[in-house]
Simulated assay, not measured.
Amino acid sequence: MSAFFEWLDTQPVGSVLYVSLGSFLSVSSAQMGEIVAGIRNSRVRYFWEKGGGFWTHCGLNSIIEGLYAAVPVVTFPIFSNQVPNSERILENWKIRWRVKKLEIESGSLVIRDEITQLVKRAMDLNSDERKGMSKRAKEVKEILFV
């Protein structure tokens, strides 16, 4: 594990996307393939642990982690309370991008091109959109955790 943290320490601040899909519910193998391919195609640094952006399923614990870390969030709600968590909590504070799902015969799927473009937007440290979200994320953290 220390090799991962050593790698993280060598990356520019805020340049690594942290991906969390929770521990209870999971996505289909087809959806996981699209997520992995989309993130890889974006060519941003990513890690399934700690980073400067946060991809989350919007479980309450993940929301709290993202707020405490004061980072913008890419939301991928999967089930139940995760959808309103994404909508009410993160949209009200304007610190998130939401992944859009396509309806297909067997359910819904987010395709890799959508994921690639969204991850690029979320991790563009020089964009005004990202800078604004980062600033608001820090303000929300100060309100909630100070």
Rank of each mutant, 00 (worst) to 15 (best):
V73D: 09
R130V: 01
G38M: 09
E91V: 07
L109Y: 06
R136C: 03
N41K: 12
Q31H: 06
Q11F: 04
F145Q: 06
E142D: 15
G22K: 11
S20N: 15
S86K: 05
I89D: 03
Y18M: 08
W93Y: 12
G38D: 08
S20D: 14
S28M: 02
E142V: 00
K120E: 14
P12D: 11
A122K: 11
Y46H: 14
I115S: 03
K94A: 05
F47T: 00
K101T: 13
L25S: 12
F47R: 03
S106Y: 09
A137I: 01
Y68T: 07
L109P: 03
H57L: 00
G52Y: 09
E49V: 02
E65P: 12
D124M: 07
I35K: 08
V140S: 06
L17I: 01
S29L: 04
A137Y: 04
P77R: 08
Q117A: 15
K100Q: 11
I35L: 15
V119F: 07
N41Y: 04
F24I: 15
I78D: 01
E34L: 03
D113S: 14
K120G: 08
E34D: 03
G52W: 10
E34K: 04
M32G: 00
E114N: 11
M123H: 06
D128P: 11
G53K: 10
L60C: 03
